[in-house]
Amino acid sequence: MIELAQVTKSHGLRLVLDGFDLTIRSGERVVLSGPSGCGKTTVLRLIAGLLAPDQGTVSLNGQLASRDGRILIPPERRAIGYVFQDLALWPHLTVLENVEFPLKARGVDQKARSSQVSEMLSLVQLQSFAQAYPSSLSGGEQQRVAIARALVARPSFVLMDEPLSNLDEDLRTSLGNCILDLHKRLAFALVYVTHNRDEILQFDGRTIWLGKSKPKANAEL
């Protein structure tokens, strides 16, 4: 379970979150939505441990992860998968190396690594692109590499920051279905950020609306 309690966060002089509360249960599907600059990405970064709350707490599975400007559990020990808005695929690594990285960094042995990577690549239908570099892939293929990398270490929580925003409608629908399928199969909790109404309907989970001024606790759509 992820729990954000009374979280306040500013970027410079701009107050982004003020006394924000959010609880996400295991296996749950949550859609975070709202206008640009309302703090959607900030919420994901706070959960991932890439940012610390100025005030308030972030807990993971009952364990205090960040509190009052301090990160108590670093990102690499939170077992979280993250699909960045710009995908953040490492351009100097192949598709296989990109997907393999989280396992390698966690010291998973070569045999287990190969089998997990190959299973994940087949789930996102990218086996034939294993040796390709990200820059040679289409937008949809890059998106799938980012998803595979986020899921390969079987995290309990997966955060997705507008991962489909740059795709055309057909591709967005089909990749959206792919994500939903993976969510069902792998049973992770999914926090999905979007401001697209079609995606909100497609993902059909608990939707949290972050208002422009002061996002308040569990303001559901």
Binding site: L50, F84, A105, A153
Partner: peptide, 10 residues
């Protein structure tokens, strides 16, 4: 964000 992506694992 390329570094942030890696920070989630190491």
């Amino acid at each position: 964000s390329l570094e942030d992506a890696a920070r989630l694992s190491c």
